Computed example of a mutant assay.
Amino acid sequence: MATTLNKHITFVLSLFLIVLIAFPVVNAMLLQDIYAFCKETNNVNFCLKYIGTDKRILAARNLNDVLLIAFSQCKIQVSEAAKHINKVRQKFSGPIGKERIKFCERNYGLASGLFQEAYETGQQKVLAYRAHLSAKVGSTYVRECEEEWKKNGPIQKSPVTYYNTNVIKLSSIIRVIIDKLYMN
């Protein structure tokens, strides 16, 4: 009798686990909704790459969750840029190059804190717009880093253009989300 009961309990638990694995989040957004959203952005492929393939998208229930992913992706880009700056620092040994590297490090530190603040504030759905403002200021710091390589001396190619561009593109995705959350 105990073995039969154990078999039934095991069967029910196995079935429950299969349902949880097959349908992890009941209220999750559908993938076609994510694709439709990305089609509304300036760069569909970029959106699909950084938002649509983020593993957290499978648990996203609404645009506020997508907004959190975008904030997080900005922070990731800023962190990657900071690592890259450390790798290329020795290539900019002159006084202007050193000053530009220092400027970007400072700006990326500030941007990182602001994107983290945006993420944390955005978790409180009613503060999503305030979170957007933090991310907007963070994007400004990133943009200033890019501009620094074109002024105060000879123009140089920024070593972090790739990351700066990604943050700017993510910022445009954030704007689309904010518009959809607050303008509809």
Rank of each mutant, 00 (worst) to 15 (best):
Q90H: 14
V26A: 11
V44E: 13
R89D: 10
N64Y: 02
P24L: 03
G97N: 05
R61N: 11
N62T: 11
C47M: 08
T41H: 09
V26Q: 10
N45D: 13
A81C: 09
N45W: 04
T53W: 08
D65V: 11
F92S: 03
L63H: 06
P95M: 12
R56F: 08
A36H: 09
L58E: 15
K87P: 02
Q77Y: 03
I85N: 01
N27S: 13
A81H: 02
V25N: 02
N45L: 11
R89P: 03
K83T: 12
I34M: 03
L58H: 13
N43C: 10
A59V: 09
G94A: 09
I34R: 01
Y50W: 07
V78W: 01
A28I: 08
P95G: 01
E80A: 14
N64K: 07
K91L: 14
G52Y: 05
V25T: 09
D65F: 10
R89E: 13
I57S: 04
G94F: 10
L58S: 13
F37L: 08
L20V: 11
V25H: 08
G52T: 12
N64F: 00
N86C: 04
K83V: 10
D65K: 08
L58V: 15
I69E: 00
F23P: 01
T53N: 12
A60Y: 05
T41D: 02
L48D: 01
L67E: 03
K83D: 14
C74G: 11
D65T: 12
A82Y: 13
G94D: 15
C74L: 08
Q77G: 00
E40M: 14
Q90M: 12
K91Y: 13
P95I: 08
C74P: 00
K39R: 15
T53H: 07
N86R: 15
Q32M: 09
L48M: 15
I69C: 02
P95D: 12
L48I: 14
L30E: 15
F92W: 10
F46I: 07
I76G: 00
T41E: 08
F71I: 02
E80P: 00
L20F: 15
V88G: 02
V66F: 01
D33R: 05
Q77F: 06
C38Q: 05
N43A: 14
I21W: 13
I69L: 07
F37Q: 00
Q32P: 02
Y35Q: 15
C74Y: 01
L48W: 06
F23M: 12
P24N: 05
P24H: 09
N64L: 06
L63I: 10
K83R: 14
E80V: 10
Q77L: 05
Q73D: 04
R61G: 12
A28D: 04
I69D: 00
S72A: 13
N62F: 10
I96H: 06
L68R: 03
A70E: 03
F46M: 04
A22I: 11
D54R: 02
M29I: 11
S93P: 07
Q73W: 00
F92A: 02
C38T: 06
I76M: 08
N86T: 13
F92N: 06
A60S: 15
N42H: 11
P24I: 08
L68V: 06
T53K: 14
I69K: 03
K87F: 06
K87G: 09
L48C: 06
